[in-house]
Structures are given as structure tokens and as C-alpha cells.
Amino acid sequence: MNDKLKETFHWIRADEVLKNNTRVFLARKTKGYTKAHTINYKYFVSAAACLIFLLFGGHWLYFTPTAQISIDINPSLELGVNRFDRVISVTGYNDDGLDLADALDIKFTGYTEAVNQILESETVAALLSDDELVTITVIGKDGAQSSKILSDMKSCTEHHQNAHCYFAHSDEVAEAHETGLSYGKYKALLKIQELDPSVTSDEIRDMTMKEIQDLIDSLLSGNKNETQQNTEDVQEHHDKGHGYRHGMNEKKNNISTQSKYH
């Protein structure tokens, strides 16, 4: 069988056409035997496309803020928080805010830790011990993340008497940023402008929240003296207002009471 098998296989030969086709193919593929390696662009392009998709997709996932935390005392800061609850941007909205943003290293930390660091920082701690007001506004879409951040902020600030936390929908924030104010101060500005339309954003930008509150108080008491009707209108507006305004009213009353003793 060995010989027969050998003989049979021996009959099978590659023909010259096949060999020549192979030679032509090799000469073309190696560009006349000068090309060291042929790069398979098909795989290269697919790999590059995947890489770009991953990079941009990952960048978009991580660096798109899904919520913002606006902190106003006098330093006005806004923290951008991504879907992974990490702080991805720290923006100062006045000079003190910019200084504080530079001094802190809170980027890419969890938002609770970031807010704690801000509240414990020398500047803010000094202001708080001086009875200044802290307004923390959680800005985002209605959703689980915003509710969670708001409840975390409330627990974060529960041992600070002068701190107040509110929620605002992200649609409202664009207008605030157009005026160059953080959201907390923008809401206060709106309230002041209801009482005195001549006050501008530049005037309150560098005021502390307490000073703003005092201004609101003085405007309110001024208006009260003018006409009873005006006060009623404002009061009616307050009653319709959100938590923010209720908070401010409570604070206002506290401060009014305190100022009587001074």
C-alpha cells in the first residue's frame, strides 16, 4: 500500500498557471519585494474607530455634568457633578469664589467630601462662625441623582444652623449664568428686584448672603412703611414661593430678631 499511495500522491502536481499566479500576486502584494510589511488597514481602521468611540464615549460619560451644586455665602461656587457622583468642575462666580476654587483641591472627589471640604475650609468656617448664611442649591433634572444629592446635602449641613438646601430645575439655571451670578445669588437678586428694581447683579455679586438678606429685610421694612398694600402683595408672593423663599423668610425673621438685640 505504501508504494501505491506514494505513487498516487506523486501524480498530484501544482500546475504552472497556479505558480505564476502566485508569483504575480506576491510581486504585487510586496510592491516588487520592497515592502517590509503589509499593514491590514481594515483591522487598523476598525481598531482606531473602536478606540476613538471608547475615548469619546468615556469622556462624554465622565465629563458631562448631570447635576450642579451651587454654594453661596459670599464666596459663590458651583460644583459640576457627573453621573458617577464625582465633582468634575469647580466654578467661582465672584472673586472670593474664584480664590476659594483655586485654594481647594476637590476635583474628581465625591460631592459629599467636596462640600464638607468647602464648609470646613478656613474662609468658609470663619464666615459660618460669624453667623453668615450658607445657601446650597442642588441644580439638576428631576430624578434619583438630584434627590439623593439634595438629601446628602441636607445631612451634610444639618449641624450648620445657618445652612439651607434647596432644589432647582436645571432649566432655571441658564438665566442665572447669563447674569454672571451663581444660582443662589440669582434667586436672591430676583427677590430684591421685586422690591427694588434698581438693584443690579453687579451690586450683589460680592455681597455675602447675610448682607443680601439684610438688604432684603431693609427693603421689606421700607416697603412696609410705604403702603400696607405693597407688603401684602409681597407676602402673598412669599406664600406661593418655593422652599427657597420660605427658608429665606425664616432666616430673615431670625436675623430681624437678632438685630433687635444688637
Binding site: 497556479l18 502566485t22 500576486f25 506576491l26 502584494k29 510586496t30 519585494y33 517590509a36 510589511h37 503589509t38
Partner: peptide, 15 residues
């Protein structure tokens, strides 16, 4: 397919 195999094998050898 035989032609494909010839090209694959000898290109691998050449490179």
C-alpha cells in the same frame, strides 16, 4: 481556494 492557500502560504514565507 487552492489559489488562496498558495498566496497565503507564500506571502507568509516572503514576509
Amino acid at each position: 481556494d487552492t489559489e488562496d492557500i498558495f498566496q497565503t502560504v507564500f506571502l507568509k514565507y516572503a514576509l
